[in-house]
């Protein structure tokens, strides 16, 4: 098997587009949230300025090796997730480094950043970071269950572990999307999606009004900037997975932009409508509402 070296600059180009799209989309969603609260909210380019400022901070302190590696792991999780799934279906340029079993790898990468963060924030030694990590891991694990079940259901349904083939099977009209062929799996996965987007009602982990402010309490300057970079890439990468598995993928950048925006908007919409759950409430909620849906979706197939 030969490796096409041209794939690397293409993948970097995808990364660049997604990074900028992520920065703008995050600010745009923040603006929508602010409008729901009758504010004007941050300017649309605010994320760029925050990034420049944090990279430009003059001093920083460290708490040890894992403290360095935490944000690096987190960014690796986001970038890795993006690089190993096809962003634009059918495009030679933007299929990235996807391969036959990439669905399993993607599931792993979704969790990877959180684990890295746990180690990094744990080493910072701040009690708020420790509490935040405990809550975060508990909640993300609970949210991961229905997602994993839904992904297995989809893999069983299409008899493949390749994201590209799953997208291919959904082509040819809206009714071929998993959303209509296996609605239970999509419902379970979308509930899990809420839990992993760090928006209300599931944002107790790093909400500034709770224990200030959870895992990143000790992170600052360039460390924080790395994590902000990841916060632009990771949600988009995750949404790309959802788009590919459940909503027919995207065949062009405009279609990509619309679908990603709508999926992101779903979590923002729920976020402005519902108040925040405590951790034990959210875990119970996932186990009662989302996990049975996931089990049913597997039985359905």
């Amino acid at each position: 098997m030969t490796f096409d070296w041209m794939k690397i600059p293409y993948a970097l180009l995808t990364l660049f587009i997604v990074f900028n799209f992520g920065l703008l989309l995050t600010a745009f969603i923040a603006k929508i949230g602010a409008r729901a609260g009758r504010r004007h909210g941050i300017p649309i380019w605010q994320n760029y300025i925050d990034l420049i400022k944090n990279y430009g901070q003059r001093s920083s302190i460290t708490h040890g090796v894992m403290f360095y590696l935490g944000p690096v792991f987190r960014l690796t999780g986001g970038v890795g997730l993006l690089l190993f799934v096809p962003t634009i279906y059918g495009s030679e340029m933007f299929s990235n480094l996807s391969f036959a079993g990439d669905l399993i790898l993607a599931l792993y990468f979704v969790f990877f950043g959180t684990l890295g963060m746990a180690l990094g924030a744990g080493e910072s030694g701040h009690p708020h970071a420790a509490i935040g990590i405990t809550r975060g891991l508990a909640q993300v694990t609970a949210a991961e269950l229905p997602l994993a079940l839904a992904v297995f259901a989809v893999a069983l349904q299409y008899q493949t572990l390749s994201v590209t083939e799953i997208v291919a099977a959904q082509q040819g009209g809206m009714m071929n999307w998993t959303m209509f062929t296996n609605p239970l799996a999509v419902a379970a996965a979308m509930l899990a999606f809420l839990g992993s987007m760090m928006r209300p009602p599931f944002d107790v982990v790093l909400a500034p009004q709770e224990i200030p402010i959870g895992p990143p309490t000790e992170y600052h300057s360039a460390y924080l900037a790395l994590m902000q970079t990841n916060r632009a890439i990771f949600p988009i990468a995750k949404i790309v997975i959802y788009m590919n598995l459940f909503f027919g993928g995207a065949t062009s950048w405009p279609e990509f932009a619309v679908k990603v925006f709508l999926i992101y908007l779903f979590s923002a919409f729920v976020g402005v409508c519902f108040p925040r759950f405590r951790v034990e409430q959210s875990i119970r909620w996932f186990l009662i509402w989302a996990v049975p849906l996931g089990v049913l979706s597997i039985l359905w197939v």
Binding site: A34, R39, H40, G41, I42, P43, Q46, I49, H128, P208, P212, I213, P216, T217, E218, Y219, H220, L224
Partner: peptide, 16 residues
Amino acid sequence: FDAYRYGIQWRPTPRQ
């Protein structure tokens, strides 16, 4: 008054 319009935000930790 919405100071977020002017790039002013509140952080709960002195580090940031």
